[in-house]
Nucleic acid binder design. Structure first.
Length: 491
RNA sequence: CGGGGUAUAGCACAGUCCGGUUAGUGUACCUGCUUUGGGAGCAGGGGGUCGCAGGUUCGAAUCCUGCUACCCCGACCA
Protein backbone atom coordinates (compact mmCIF):
# COMPACT_ATOMS: atom_id res chain seq x y z
CA UNK A 1 0.00 0.00 0.00
CA UNK A 2 1.49 3.28 -1.09
CA UNK A 3 1.39 6.27 1.17
CA UNK A 4 0.85 8.95 -1.40
CA UNK A 5 -1.91 9.63 -3.83
CA UNK A 6 -1.32 12.07 -6.66
CA UNK A 7 -3.44 15.20 -6.20
CA UNK A 8 -6.30 15.78 -8.60
CA UNK A 9 -5.07 19.20 -9.60
CA UNK A 10 -1.57 17.91 -10.33
CA UNK A 11 -2.62 15.11 -12.66
CA UNK A 12 -6.24 14.07 -12.68
CA UNK A 13 -5.71 11.06 -14.88
CA UNK A 14 -2.87 9.73 -12.72
CA UNK A 15 -4.92 10.39 -9.59
CA UNK A 16 -7.68 8.21 -11.02
CA UNK A 17 -5.38 5.36 -12.00
CA UNK A 18 -3.61 5.34 -8.66
CA UNK A 19 -6.83 5.54 -6.71
CA UNK A 20 -8.41 2.58 -8.45
CA UNK A 21 -5.36 0.49 -7.67
CA UNK A 22 -4.62 1.73 -4.16
CA UNK A 23 -8.23 1.52 -3.03
CA UNK A 24 -8.07 -2.11 -4.10
CA UNK A 25 -10.83 -1.85 -6.69
CA UNK A 26 -9.03 -3.36 -9.67
CA UNK A 27 -5.68 -3.87 -11.32
CA UNK A 28 -4.31 -4.51 -14.75
CA UNK A 29 -4.06 -8.17 -15.60
CA UNK A 30 -1.56 -10.19 -17.58
CA UNK A 31 -3.99 -9.96 -20.49
CA UNK A 32 -3.74 -6.85 -22.62
CA UNK A 33 -6.56 -4.41 -21.92
CA UNK A 34 -8.30 -6.70 -19.43
CA UNK A 35 -8.55 -5.93 -15.74
CA UNK A 36 -8.83 -7.96 -12.60
CA UNK A 37 -11.68 -6.64 -10.47
CA UNK A 38 -10.55 -7.18 -6.89
CA UNK A 39 -12.85 -8.22 -4.04
CA UNK A 40 -13.42 -4.70 -2.71
CA UNK A 41 -14.21 -3.36 -6.17
CA UNK A 42 -16.36 -6.34 -7.01
CA UNK A 43 -18.33 -5.85 -3.79
CA UNK A 44 -19.32 -2.39 -5.03
CA UNK A 45 -20.29 -3.82 -8.42
CA UNK A 46 -22.41 -6.46 -6.68
CA UNK A 47 -24.24 -3.70 -4.81
CA UNK A 48 -24.85 -1.91 -8.09
CA UNK A 49 -26.05 -5.14 -9.68
CA UNK A 50 -28.41 -5.90 -6.82
CA UNK A 51 -30.03 -2.46 -6.94
CA UNK A 52 -30.33 -2.39 -10.73
CA UNK A 53 -31.55 -5.97 -10.93
CA UNK A 54 -34.35 -5.16 -8.51
CA UNK A 55 -35.29 -2.09 -10.53
CA UNK A 56 -35.41 -4.17 -13.72
CA UNK A 57 -37.61 -6.75 -12.07
CA UNK A 58 -39.85 -4.05 -10.64
CA UNK A 59 -40.43 -2.85 -14.20
CA UNK A 60 -41.40 -6.33 -15.37
CA UNK A 61 -38.15 -7.72 -16.73
CA UNK A 62 -36.68 -11.18 -16.28
CA UNK A 63 -33.11 -12.41 -16.53
CA UNK A 64 -31.83 -14.89 -19.11
CA UNK A 65 -28.48 -15.84 -20.56
CA UNK A 66 -27.33 -16.00 -24.16
CA UNK A 67 -24.08 -17.39 -25.63
CA UNK A 68 -20.71 -15.70 -25.45
CA UNK A 69 -20.05 -16.58 -29.10
CA UNK A 70 -21.87 -15.27 -32.12
CA UNK A 71 -21.53 -16.93 -35.54
CA UNK A 72 -19.97 -14.51 -37.97
CA UNK A 73 -22.89 -14.77 -40.37
CA UNK A 74 -25.36 -13.56 -37.72
CA UNK A 75 -23.26 -10.60 -37.04
CA UNK A 76 -23.34 -9.29 -40.57
CA UNK A 77 -27.11 -9.28 -40.98
CA UNK A 78 -27.71 -5.76 -39.73
CA UNK A 79 -25.55 -3.46 -41.86
CA UNK A 80 -25.17 -0.46 -39.53
CA UNK A 81 -24.56 -2.76 -36.59
CA UNK A 82 -21.68 -4.66 -38.16
CA UNK A 83 -20.12 -1.44 -39.38
CA UNK A 84 -20.18 -0.05 -35.87
CA UNK A 85 -18.53 -3.01 -34.21
CA UNK A 86 -16.45 -4.77 -36.87
CA UNK A 87 -13.25 -2.94 -36.05
CA UNK A 88 -13.16 -4.09 -32.44
CA UNK A 89 -14.18 -7.73 -32.52
CA UNK A 90 -12.25 -10.67 -31.11
CA UNK A 91 -12.69 -13.73 -33.33
CA UNK A 92 -12.41 -17.43 -32.52
CA UNK A 93 -11.03 -19.35 -35.48
CA UNK A 94 -9.86 -22.69 -34.01
CA UNK A 95 -11.01 -25.10 -31.34
CA UNK A 96 -7.91 -27.11 -30.46
CA UNK A 97 -4.24 -26.80 -29.50
CA UNK A 98 -1.48 -29.34 -29.99
CA UNK A 99 2.11 -29.83 -28.82
CA UNK A 100 4.74 -28.19 -30.96
CA UNK A 101 7.18 -30.40 -32.89
CA UNK A 102 9.97 -29.79 -30.37
CA UNK A 103 7.63 -30.75 -27.53
CA UNK A 104 8.40 -27.58 -25.62
CA UNK A 105 5.21 -25.66 -26.18
CA UNK A 106 1.77 -25.64 -27.68
CA UNK A 107 0.39 -24.15 -30.85
CA UNK A 108 -2.93 -23.79 -32.61
CA UNK A 109 -3.76 -27.00 -34.44
CA UNK A 110 -4.30 -25.96 -38.06
CA UNK A 111 -6.52 -29.00 -38.59
CA UNK A 112 -8.94 -27.65 -36.01
CA UNK A 113 -10.15 -24.68 -37.99
CA UNK A 114 -13.79 -23.76 -37.45
CA UNK A 115 -16.12 -23.99 -40.43
CA UNK A 116 -17.48 -20.62 -39.43
CA UNK A 117 -15.63 -18.19 -37.21
CA UNK A 118 -17.22 -17.17 -33.93
CA UNK A 119 -17.26 -13.57 -32.76
CA UNK A 120 -16.81 -13.00 -29.06
CA UNK A 121 -19.87 -10.85 -28.37
CA UNK A 122 -19.27 -7.10 -28.26
CA UNK A 123 -23.04 -6.84 -27.61
CA UNK A 124 -25.75 -9.44 -28.07
CA UNK A 125 -28.45 -8.03 -30.33
CA UNK A 126 -27.71 -10.45 -33.15
CA UNK A 127 -27.64 -13.71 -31.22
CA UNK A 128 -30.66 -12.62 -29.21
CA UNK A 129 -32.74 -11.61 -32.20
CA UNK A 130 -31.86 -14.83 -33.93
CA UNK A 131 -33.20 -16.55 -30.81
CA UNK A 132 -36.29 -14.34 -30.49
CA UNK A 133 -37.23 -15.38 -34.00
CA UNK A 134 -38.10 -18.77 -32.56
CA UNK A 135 -39.92 -17.36 -29.57
CA UNK A 136 -42.27 -15.05 -31.42
CA UNK A 137 -45.16 -16.06 -33.65
CA UNK A 138 -48.14 -14.17 -32.32
CA UNK A 139 -48.94 -10.89 -30.62
CA UNK A 140 -49.69 -13.15 -27.64
CA UNK A 141 -45.94 -13.87 -27.38
CA UNK A 142 -45.19 -10.19 -26.88
CA UNK A 143 -43.74 -8.32 -25.20
CA UNK A 144 -40.51 -10.13 -24.37
CA UNK A 145 -38.66 -8.29 -21.61
CA UNK A 146 -35.29 -9.97 -21.04
CA UNK A 147 -32.14 -8.78 -19.40
CA UNK A 148 -28.81 -10.54 -19.18
CA UNK A 149 -25.83 -9.94 -16.93
CA UNK A 150 -22.77 -10.79 -18.94
CA UNK A 151 -19.27 -9.96 -20.06
CA UNK A 152 -18.56 -8.54 -23.49
CA UNK A 153 -15.37 -7.91 -25.43
CA UNK A 154 -14.51 -4.85 -27.49
CA UNK A 155 -10.94 -4.77 -28.71
CA UNK A 156 -10.20 -1.20 -27.68
CA UNK A 157 -6.91 0.35 -28.65
CA UNK A 158 -6.33 2.26 -25.47
CA UNK A 159 -7.78 1.02 -22.25
CA UNK A 160 -8.21 2.42 -18.74
CA UNK A 161 -9.37 0.58 -15.66
CA UNK A 162 -13.19 0.55 -15.59
CA UNK A 163 -13.56 3.42 -18.07
CA UNK A 164 -12.54 1.44 -21.11
CA UNK A 165 -11.38 -2.17 -20.94
CA UNK A 166 -11.23 -4.80 -23.64
CA UNK A 167 -13.49 -7.06 -21.61
CA UNK A 168 -16.11 -5.54 -19.38
CA UNK A 169 -19.09 -6.63 -17.31
CA UNK A 170 -22.49 -5.20 -17.99
CA UNK A 171 -26.15 -5.90 -18.27
CA UNK A 172 -27.97 -5.69 -21.54
CA UNK A 173 -31.73 -5.60 -21.77
CA UNK A 174 -33.35 -6.72 -25.01
CA UNK A 175 -37.04 -6.26 -25.45
CA UNK A 176 -39.49 -7.09 -28.21
CA UNK A 177 -42.80 -5.28 -28.67
CA UNK A 178 -45.87 -5.39 -30.87
CA UNK A 179 -46.01 -1.65 -31.42
CA UNK A 180 -43.72 1.26 -31.96
CA UNK A 181 -45.36 3.23 -29.13
CA UNK A 182 -44.73 0.44 -26.67
CA UNK A 183 -41.08 0.09 -27.69
CA UNK A 184 -40.49 3.82 -27.43
CA UNK A 185 -42.13 3.84 -24.00
CA UNK A 186 -39.84 1.01 -22.92
CA UNK A 187 -36.77 2.91 -24.16
CA UNK A 188 -37.80 5.95 -22.14
CA UNK A 189 -38.72 3.89 -19.09
CA UNK A 190 -35.26 2.34 -18.98
CA UNK A 191 -33.32 5.57 -19.35
CA UNK A 192 -35.39 6.77 -16.41
CA UNK A 193 -34.44 3.67 -14.43
CA UNK A 194 -30.80 4.44 -15.16
CA UNK A 195 -31.04 8.07 -14.14
CA UNK A 196 -32.87 7.10 -10.94
CA UNK A 197 -30.13 4.63 -10.15
CA UNK A 198 -27.36 7.11 -10.89
CA UNK A 199 -28.90 9.83 -8.76
CA UNK A 200 -30.36 7.80 -5.88
CA UNK A 201 -27.73 5.11 -5.44
CA UNK A 202 -24.57 6.55 -6.94
CA UNK A 203 -25.42 10.08 -5.75
CA UNK A 204 -24.39 11.21 -9.22
CA UNK A 205 -26.55 13.75 -11.04
CA UNK A 206 -27.03 13.00 -14.73
CA UNK A 207 -28.58 14.68 -17.73
CA UNK A 208 -30.95 12.59 -19.80
CA UNK A 209 -31.21 13.16 -23.48
CA UNK A 210 -31.07 11.93 -27.04
CA UNK A 211 -27.83 11.19 -28.82
CA UNK A 212 -27.37 12.85 -32.18
CA UNK A 213 -27.53 10.65 -35.28
CA UNK A 214 -23.75 10.61 -35.36
CA UNK A 215 -23.37 9.37 -31.78
CA UNK A 216 -26.20 6.86 -31.96
CA UNK A 217 -25.78 3.14 -31.24
CA UNK A 218 -25.00 1.13 -34.37
CA UNK A 219 -28.37 -0.08 -35.59
CA UNK A 220 -30.58 2.17 -33.46
CA UNK A 221 -33.18 4.71 -34.62
CA UNK A 222 -32.85 6.66 -31.39
CA UNK A 223 -30.41 6.45 -28.50
CA UNK A 224 -31.11 7.91 -25.08
CA UNK A 225 -28.18 8.55 -22.79
CA UNK A 226 -27.42 9.70 -19.28
CA UNK A 227 -24.44 12.02 -19.12
CA UNK A 228 -22.53 12.74 -15.93
CA UNK A 229 -19.90 15.40 -15.33
CA UNK A 230 -16.63 14.32 -13.78
CA UNK A 231 -14.44 16.46 -11.53
CA UNK A 232 -12.03 17.31 -14.33
CA UNK A 233 -14.83 18.89 -16.35
CA UNK A 234 -15.19 16.00 -18.77
CA UNK A 235 -18.45 14.20 -19.45
CA UNK A 236 -18.94 10.49 -19.02
CA UNK A 237 -21.65 8.61 -20.87
CA UNK A 238 -22.98 6.43 -18.10
CA UNK A 239 -25.83 4.46 -19.60
CA UNK A 240 -27.76 4.16 -22.83
CA UNK A 241 -31.18 2.98 -23.92
CA UNK A 242 -31.83 2.37 -27.59
CA UNK A 243 -34.97 2.35 -29.67
CA UNK A 244 -34.06 -0.11 -32.41
CA UNK A 245 -37.23 0.23 -34.48
CA UNK A 246 -37.75 -2.82 -36.68
CA UNK A 247 -34.12 -3.00 -37.82
CA UNK A 248 -33.21 -6.21 -36.05
CA UNK A 249 -36.62 -7.80 -36.60
CA UNK A 250 -36.16 -7.23 -40.32
CA UNK A 251 -32.54 -8.41 -40.33
CA UNK A 252 -33.49 -11.62 -38.52
CA UNK A 253 -36.94 -11.93 -40.02
CA UNK A 254 -38.84 -11.78 -36.75
CA UNK A 255 -42.54 -11.34 -37.51
CA UNK A 256 -45.69 -11.90 -35.54
CA UNK A 257 -49.34 -12.26 -36.42
CA UNK A 258 -51.34 -9.37 -35.00
CA UNK A 259 -54.95 -9.50 -33.83
CA UNK A 260 -56.09 -9.06 -37.42
CA UNK A 261 -53.95 -12.02 -38.49
CA UNK A 262 -51.50 -9.87 -40.41
CA UNK A 263 -47.77 -10.48 -40.23
CA UNK A 264 -45.76 -7.58 -38.84
CA UNK A 265 -42.16 -7.01 -37.83
CA UNK A 266 -41.44 -6.75 -34.12
CA UNK A 267 -40.30 -3.50 -32.50
CA UNK A 268 -37.17 -3.63 -30.39
CA UNK A 269 -35.19 -1.90 -27.68
CA UNK A 270 -31.89 -2.55 -25.98
CA UNK A 271 -30.30 -0.85 -23.00
CA UNK A 272 -27.19 -1.28 -20.93
CA UNK A 273 -24.90 -0.07 -18.20
CA UNK A 274 -21.45 -1.45 -17.55
CA UNK A 275 -18.59 -1.56 -15.09
CA UNK A 276 -17.81 1.87 -16.47
CA UNK A 277 -20.21 3.00 -13.74
CA UNK A 278 -17.46 2.04 -11.30
CA UNK A 279 -15.20 4.60 -12.95
CA UNK A 280 -17.98 7.16 -12.80
CA UNK A 281 -18.48 6.46 -9.11
CA UNK A 282 -14.79 6.94 -8.37
CA UNK A 283 -14.53 10.17 -10.32
CA UNK A 284 -17.79 11.70 -9.20
CA UNK A 285 -17.03 11.96 -5.48
CA UNK A 286 -13.51 11.01 -4.52
CA UNK A 287 -10.88 13.44 -3.24
CA UNK A 288 -7.13 13.67 -2.71
CA UNK A 289 -7.34 11.39 0.34
CA UNK A 290 -8.95 8.61 -1.64
CA UNK A 291 -12.30 7.15 -2.49
CA UNK A 292 -15.57 8.63 -1.26
CA UNK A 293 -18.37 6.09 -1.55
CA UNK A 294 -22.09 6.74 -1.31
CA UNK A 295 -23.45 4.81 1.70
CA UNK A 296 -25.94 2.96 -0.50
CA UNK A 297 -23.15 1.30 -2.50
CA UNK A 298 -20.33 1.02 0.03
CA UNK A 299 -19.34 -2.61 0.73
CA UNK A 300 -19.49 -1.68 4.40
CA UNK A 301 -20.96 1.59 5.56
CA UNK A 302 -19.17 1.74 8.88
CA UNK A 303 -15.80 0.55 10.09
CA UNK A 304 -15.03 0.31 13.78
CA UNK A 305 -11.38 0.79 14.72
CA UNK A 306 -10.33 -0.20 18.25
CA UNK A 307 -7.56 1.65 20.04
CA UNK A 308 -5.88 -0.01 22.99
CA UNK A 309 -2.75 -0.65 25.01
CA UNK A 310 -2.13 -4.17 26.18
CA UNK A 311 -4.23 -7.31 26.24
CA UNK A 312 -6.52 -6.17 29.01
CA UNK A 313 -7.67 -3.05 27.16
CA UNK A 314 -7.87 -5.00 23.91
CA UNK A 315 -10.36 -7.41 25.49
CA UNK A 316 -12.50 -4.60 26.84
CA UNK A 317 -12.46 -2.56 23.65
CA UNK A 318 -13.25 -5.65 21.63
CA UNK A 319 -16.27 -6.39 23.76
CA UNK A 320 -17.57 -2.83 23.47
CA UNK A 321 -16.83 -2.80 19.72
CA UNK A 322 -18.76 -5.99 19.12
CA UNK A 323 -21.70 -4.62 21.04
CA UNK A 324 -21.80 -1.49 18.88
CA UNK A 325 -21.41 -3.61 15.76
CA UNK A 326 -24.47 -5.66 16.70
CA UNK A 327 -26.49 -2.55 17.46
CA UNK A 328 -25.66 -1.08 14.08
CA UNK A 329 -26.46 -4.34 12.32
CA UNK A 330 -29.87 -4.36 13.96
CA UNK A 331 -30.46 -0.98 12.32
CA UNK A 332 -29.69 -2.47 8.91
CA UNK A 333 -26.26 -0.88 8.74
CA UNK A 334 -23.37 -2.88 7.29
CA UNK A 335 -20.36 -2.82 9.59
CA UNK A 336 -16.81 -4.05 9.63
CA UNK A 337 -15.11 -4.29 13.00
CA UNK A 338 -11.41 -4.22 12.25
CA UNK A 339 -10.01 -5.81 15.40
CA UNK A 340 -6.80 -6.97 13.74
CA UNK A 341 -3.84 -6.39 16.02
CA UNK A 342 -1.43 -6.52 13.11
CA UNK A 343 -2.02 -2.89 12.11
CA UNK A 344 -1.98 0.28 14.14
CA UNK A 345 -4.98 2.62 14.43
CA UNK A 346 -3.34 5.36 12.39
CA UNK A 347 -2.65 2.93 9.61
CA UNK A 348 -6.27 1.82 9.62
CA UNK A 349 -7.57 5.40 9.57
CA UNK A 350 -5.59 6.12 6.42
CA UNK A 351 -6.56 2.78 4.89
CA UNK A 352 -10.29 3.23 5.30
CA UNK A 353 -10.15 6.81 4.13
CA UNK A 354 -8.45 5.59 0.97
CA UNK A 355 -11.16 2.98 0.56
CA UNK A 356 -13.95 5.48 1.03
CA UNK A 357 -15.79 3.89 3.95
CA UNK A 358 -18.52 6.46 4.71
CA UNK A 359 -18.23 6.39 8.52
CA UNK A 360 -15.41 5.41 10.83
CA UNK A 361 -15.96 4.80 14.52
CA UNK A 362 -12.91 4.90 16.79
CA UNK A 363 -13.20 3.28 20.17
CA UNK A 364 -10.46 3.48 22.80
CA UNK A 365 -9.81 3.49 26.52
CA UNK A 366 -10.85 7.12 26.70
CA UNK A 367 -14.23 6.22 25.22
CA UNK A 368 -14.74 3.25 27.49
CA UNK A 369 -14.26 5.55 30.44
CA UNK A 370 -16.64 8.20 29.12
CA UNK A 371 -19.15 5.94 27.39
CA UNK A 372 -18.47 7.60 24.05
CA UNK A 373 -17.20 6.90 20.55
CA UNK A 374 -15.46 9.10 18.00
CA UNK A 375 -17.33 9.23 14.72
CA UNK A 376 -15.61 10.47 11.56
CA UNK A 377 -17.46 10.98 8.28
CA UNK A 378 -15.54 10.40 5.08
CA UNK A 379 -17.19 13.02 2.90
CA UNK A 380 -16.31 16.04 5.08
CA UNK A 381 -13.59 14.40 7.24
CA UNK A 382 -15.37 15.86 10.30
CA UNK A 383 -14.87 14.10 13.62
CA UNK A 384 -17.30 14.24 16.53
CA UNK A 385 -17.70 12.42 19.80
CA UNK A 386 -21.07 10.86 20.58
CA UNK A 387 -22.41 8.85 23.51
CA UNK A 388 -22.46 5.12 22.86
CA UNK A 389 -26.11 5.13 23.77
CA UNK A 390 -28.31 5.40 20.68
CA UNK A 391 -25.25 5.42 18.44
CA UNK A 392 -27.03 3.38 15.77
CA UNK A 393 -29.60 6.10 15.27
CA UNK A 394 -26.92 8.76 15.00
CA UNK A 395 -25.03 6.69 12.45
CA UNK A 396 -28.14 5.95 10.44
CA UNK A 397 -28.88 9.66 10.18
CA UNK A 398 -25.30 10.44 9.30
CA UNK A 399 -25.34 7.88 6.50
CA UNK A 400 -28.41 9.55 5.03
CA UNK A 401 -26.69 12.90 5.37
CA UNK A 402 -23.62 11.67 3.57
CA UNK A 403 -25.63 10.17 0.72
CA UNK A 404 -27.43 13.47 0.31
CA UNK A 405 -24.37 15.64 0.81
CA UNK A 406 -22.23 14.00 -1.84
CA UNK A 407 -25.12 14.19 -4.31
CA UNK A 408 -25.52 17.89 -3.62
CA UNK A 409 -21.79 18.42 -3.85
CA UNK A 410 -21.71 16.75 -7.26
CA UNK A 411 -24.80 18.70 -8.34
CA UNK A 412 -23.23 21.99 -7.25
CA UNK A 413 -20.08 21.13 -9.10
CA UNK A 414 -22.13 20.51 -12.21
CA UNK A 415 -24.05 23.76 -11.81
CA UNK A 416 -20.80 25.67 -11.45
CA UNK A 417 -19.46 23.98 -14.57
CA UNK A 418 -22.46 24.31 -16.82
CA UNK A 419 -22.42 27.23 -19.21
CA UNK A 420 -24.47 28.65 -22.01
CA UNK A 421 -22.53 29.99 -24.97
CA UNK A 422 -24.02 32.52 -27.37
CA UNK A 423 -21.19 32.69 -29.85
CA UNK A 424 -18.12 30.79 -30.97
CA UNK A 425 -15.60 32.70 -28.84
CA UNK A 426 -17.62 32.15 -25.68
CA UNK A 427 -18.02 28.49 -26.58
CA UNK A 428 -14.29 27.93 -27.01
CA UNK A 429 -13.50 29.97 -23.90
CA UNK A 430 -15.82 27.87 -21.72
CA UNK A 431 -14.44 24.62 -23.08
CA UNK A 432 -10.79 25.57 -22.84
CA UNK A 433 -10.70 27.71 -19.73
CA UNK A 434 -13.60 26.57 -17.56
CA UNK A 435 -14.36 22.98 -18.59
CA UNK A 436 -17.68 21.29 -18.15
CA UNK A 437 -21.02 21.26 -19.93
CA UNK A 438 -21.67 23.97 -22.47
CA UNK A 439 -25.09 24.58 -23.99
CA UNK A 440 -24.96 26.06 -27.47
CA UNK A 441 -26.99 26.36 -30.65
CA UNK A 442 -26.27 23.84 -33.37
CA UNK A 443 -27.67 23.69 -36.87
CA UNK A 444 -28.60 20.01 -36.56
CA UNK A 445 -26.21 18.58 -39.13
CA UNK A 446 -23.64 15.84 -38.60
CA UNK A 447 -21.23 17.86 -40.71
CA UNK A 448 -21.28 20.76 -38.25
CA UNK A 449 -21.10 18.44 -35.27
CA UNK A 450 -17.94 16.85 -36.66
CA UNK A 451 -16.43 20.21 -37.54
CA UNK A 452 -16.96 21.41 -33.96
CA UNK A 453 -15.42 18.21 -32.65
CA UNK A 454 -12.45 18.68 -34.93
CA UNK A 455 -11.87 22.25 -33.76
CA UNK A 456 -12.55 21.85 -30.03
CA UNK A 457 -12.52 18.11 -29.22
CA UNK A 458 -15.97 18.66 -27.74
CA UNK A 459 -18.90 16.51 -28.80
CA UNK A 460 -22.62 16.82 -28.43
CA UNK A 461 -23.29 14.76 -25.32
CA UNK A 462 -27.02 14.86 -25.84
CA UNK A 463 -30.07 16.83 -26.75
CA UNK A 464 -31.66 16.93 -23.31
CA UNK A 465 -35.18 15.62 -22.80
CA UNK A 466 -37.63 18.50 -22.30
CA UNK A 467 -35.01 20.88 -23.67
CA UNK A 468 -36.55 24.37 -23.91
CA UNK A 469 -36.97 25.54 -27.48
CA UNK A 470 -35.50 28.91 -28.40
CA UNK A 471 -34.62 30.33 -31.76
CA UNK A 472 -30.97 31.06 -32.33
CA UNK A 473 -28.04 30.69 -34.65
CA UNK A 474 -25.58 27.82 -34.81
CA UNK A 475 -22.37 28.87 -33.07
CA UNK A 476 -20.27 27.55 -35.93
CA UNK A 477 -22.26 28.08 -39.12
CA UNK A 478 -24.74 30.79 -38.05
CA UNK A 479 -27.56 28.76 -39.58
CA UNK A 480 -30.91 28.78 -37.76
CA UNK A 481 -31.35 26.53 -34.73
CA UNK A 482 -34.35 25.84 -32.54
CA UNK A 483 -32.61 24.79 -29.33
CA UNK A 484 -29.31 24.71 -27.51
CA UNK A 485 -27.75 21.29 -27.16
CA UNK A 486 -25.30 19.96 -24.59
CA UNK A 487 -21.63 19.94 -25.54
CA UNK A 488 -18.61 18.72 -23.55
CA UNK A 489 -15.27 17.08 -23.89
CA UNK A 490 -15.76 13.50 -22.87
CA UNK A 491 -14.19 10.22 -21.91
C1' C B 1 -3.23 2.11 -35.80
C1' G B 2 0.32 7.09 -35.94
C1' G B 3 3.95 9.96 -32.58
C1' G B 4 6.88 9.77 -27.94
C1' G B 5 8.64 7.07 -23.64
C1' U B 6 9.57 2.92 -20.32
C1' A B 7 10.89 -2.34 -18.90
C1' U B 8 16.29 -3.97 -12.90
C1' A B 9 13.16 -7.50 -5.71
C1' G B 10 5.77 -7.38 -4.35
C1' C B 11 5.83 -1.84 -5.51
C1' A B 12 8.66 2.86 -6.73
C1' C B 13 13.40 3.81 -8.59
C1' A B 14 19.20 4.33 -9.17
C1' G B 15 23.01 1.96 -11.96
C1' U B 16 23.13 1.65 -18.69
C1' C B 17 26.05 7.10 -21.89
C1' C B 18 31.92 5.19 -20.83
C1' G B 19 31.09 -3.40 -20.37
C1' G B 20 34.90 -5.49 -15.22
C1' U B 21 34.42 -7.42 -7.38
C1' U B 22 29.07 -10.21 -4.19
C1' A B 23 23.59 -5.35 -8.86
C1' G B 24 22.09 -1.00 -4.94
C1' U B 25 18.33 2.57 -2.39
C1' G B 26 13.36 3.53 -0.49
C1' U B 27 9.08 0.98 0.65
C1' A B 28 6.76 -3.66 1.48
C1' C B 29 7.83 -8.59 3.75
C1' C B 30 9.94 -11.95 8.10
C1' U B 31 12.06 -12.19 13.49
C1' G B 32 12.81 -9.79 18.28
C1' C B 33 12.13 -5.87 21.76
C1' U B 34 9.80 -1.26 22.72
C1' U B 35 5.15 0.94 20.93
C1' U B 36 -0.53 1.87 19.78
C1' G B 37 -6.28 8.57 19.83
C1' G B 38 -3.61 9.86 12.28
C1' G B 39 0.26 5.44 7.74
C1' A B 40 5.59 3.77 14.78
C1' G B 41 11.14 3.23 16.45
C1' C B 42 15.53 0.37 16.89
C1' A B 43 18.27 -4.11 15.72
C1' G B 44 18.68 -8.31 12.69
C1' G B 45 16.99 -11.15 8.23
C1' G B 46 14.98 -13.18 3.48
C1' G B 47 13.90 -12.00 -1.53
C1' G B 48 16.80 -10.65 -8.39
C1' U B 49 17.36 -16.07 -14.59
C1' C B 50 18.31 -7.08 -14.65
C1' G B 51 10.99 -7.93 -19.96
C1' C B 52 11.86 -12.16 -23.80
C1' A B 53 15.07 -14.34 -27.78
C1' G B 54 19.46 -14.07 -30.34
C1' G B 55 24.42 -11.76 -31.24
C1' U B 56 29.41 -9.24 -30.04
C1' U B 57 33.14 -10.07 -26.02
C1' C B 58 37.90 -13.26 -21.84
C1' G B 59 33.64 -10.90 -19.39
C1' A B 60 26.97 -7.96 -20.74
C1' A B 61 21.82 -4.95 -16.49
C1' U B 62 25.35 -1.98 -19.56
C1' C B 63 26.99 -2.62 -26.69
C1' C B 64 24.08 -4.62 -31.36
C1' U B 65 19.53 -6.99 -33.71
C1' G B 66 14.63 -8.79 -33.34
C1' C B 67 10.28 -9.48 -30.40
C1' U B 68 6.75 -8.51 -26.46
C1' A B 69 4.32 -5.75 -22.79
C1' C B 70 3.09 -1.32 -20.41
C1' C B 71 2.61 4.25 -19.96
C1' C B 72 1.65 9.25 -22.23
C1' C B 73 -0.41 12.15 -26.58
C1' G B 74 -3.80 11.53 -31.00
C1' A B 75 -8.00 8.62 -34.00
C1' C B 76 -12.22 4.89 -31.95
C1' C B 77 -15.60 3.51 -28.10
C1' A B 78 -19.95 1.72 -22.71
Amino acid sequence: MGKFLTKREDNYSQWYNELVIKADLAENSAVRGCMVIKPYGYAIWEKMQAALDQMFKDTGHVNAYFPLFIPKSFFSKEAAHVEGFAKECAVVTHYRLRNTADGKGIEVDPDAKLEEELIVRPTSETIIWNTYKNWIQSYRDLPILCNQWANVVRWEMRTRLFLRTAEFLWQEGHTAHATEEEAVAETVQMINVYSDFAENFMAMPVIKGHKTANERFAGALDTYTIEALMQDGKALQSGTSHFLGQNFAKAFDVQFANKEGKLQHVWATSWGVSTRLMGALVMAHSDDNGLVLPPKLAPYQVVIVPIYKGDEQYAKVKEAGNKIKEELKDFGITVKFDDRDTHKPGWKFAEYELKGVPIRIALGARDLENGTVEVARRDTLEKNTYPQENIAKVVKNLLNDIQENIYNKALNYRKEHTFSANNWDEFVDYLDNKGGFVYAHWDGTTETELAIKDKTKATIRCIPIDNPLEDGKCILTGKPSTQKVLFAKSY
